[in-house]
Write a protein that binds this DNA or RNA. Sequence first.
DNA 1: CGATTTATTGAATCGACTCAATTGATGTGG
DNA 2: CCACATCAATTGAGTCGATTCAATAAATCG
Lengths: 253, 253
Amino acid sequence: MSSASLVRKLEQFVRLSPVDHAILNRAASERVRRFGARVDIVREGDRPKDVHLILSGWACRYKQLEDGRRQVVSFFLPGDICDVNIFILREMDHSIGTITPVSIADLSREFFDDIAVRHPRIVTAFWWETLVNAAIQREWTMNLGQRTALERTAHLLCEVWLRLRLAGLTKGDSCDFPLTQADLADATGLSKVHVNRTLQELRAEGLVVLKGKTLSVPDLDRLMRAGLFNSNYLHMDHEGQQLDAAVTDAAAG
Amino acid sequence: MSSASLVRKLEQFVRLSPVDHAILNRAASERVRRFGARVDIVREGDRPKDVHLILSGWACRYKQLEDGRRQVVSFFLPGDICDVNIFILREMDHSIGTITPVSIADLSREFFDDIAVRHPRIVTAFWWETLVNAAIQREWTMNLGQRTALERTAHLLCEVWLRLRLAGLTKGDSCDFPLTQADLADATGLSKVHVNRTLQELRAEGLVVLKGKTLSVPDLDRLMRAGLFNSNYLHMDHEGQQLDAAVTDAAAG
DNA sequence: CGATTTATTGAATCGACTCAATTGATGTGG
DNA sequence: CCACATCAATTGAGTCGATTCAATAAATCG
């Protein structure tokens, strides 16, 4: 477990220097904590202290109403960061719970203060992460507000698939997929029963194969079409690689 | 038209110095543009160049599917900023359109580079803005995923009300309210017809008075209860005022 | 292996939608 | 300032996508 997924993801956007790698690797190896499956890492109302980096495993952000209605508002996959600079807020407005066993690295306020001054390329990469997460949250809003059950489910599977691929966690057309139908229901705003029927439809169309805890996507393009999926919001366009570290490394490092 | 609403909002969180005020005021007065009602300021696919600060008027972010389905994913009120550092992305994944006539100030990359080094308190304030916007987007996800039509509409009205109040744009229990029922439909994921019926319910309960382009909220607490509204996600808790500018101004200014 | 969680199926119901028509505002030009 | 046009709000009726409730089957875990 290391910062490998994070670095791989950030380098979609900014080409980081060996020094940047070292800094991220170090930050990701101090203060590591492990959690079991289905436990809370953070609870609504807690005072945020550190920024959490997911090293391995799946987790989710969720919010809950008094009567028990629960909405998963985002998934955390390896390499994801739970809100850069969250410690400037007084209290958490949501909870974070694990889905599988998870290991995280806690990143301190001091770490962010340090990179702010000395490692502007990492700061840029974190801004990119922040902006992409915001875009994902908007897309979820779109998903819940406008898409049908089938589109919505297909869309979510496309997103998770692409994010896993970016983190280097797919092999061929398959990946680990630990979400239960209840998780999918909480994330899509559908009932468990309807998620079940929707998945059956997707299977019948040959768009997904879901068995055990493995997902296969035999034809991503078709799944994307079924989900009216446009990947632009993931901003995986290698844009910032123009900010090539090789050129500026001596100065910044 | 000035940075008044922005400053008022940011000072809920960080107490800014006179120097900070001056910097924000200057940034908000250079490069001002005006738009009519119901026009696009930014279109999906555009290359983002500047960060937009809303000086006056209402706008919204929206996304659209090929078949025309449209989701408003956020509203912009005076003092709101359309994504700090957005210019690091290659292209916009959503559009921004006006609701009323709007005036905006364009904030350049250079402005952000400058404050990053020289005005850390403003940077902190902008991080707070970014985190609150992220929290709002999560709450919208919750709203669309879990709340009924009545709760959802009440919740949205509470949020807009509180945000307007924070910006200093309410008088007593009333405020300007330029949204049409079609706008509310696009924001809540409901049909226009159902929004109409839902508003009638809210009116019948005495929870809102909506006529002309004015909204009155005779009893905010009751409206909040109807919308299962918990304001924690707006993080209006004056937390950062501990970072009192008076103490550190000489050093930073 | 039994216990518990997860997935599946059927039937009845309901919240929200669509379609279509009407009423009420708002705004503009003559 | 009225007449007309347009946009926004309202109402009714019929429909449908997704829900709830309840029972069963299958998978996973200790």
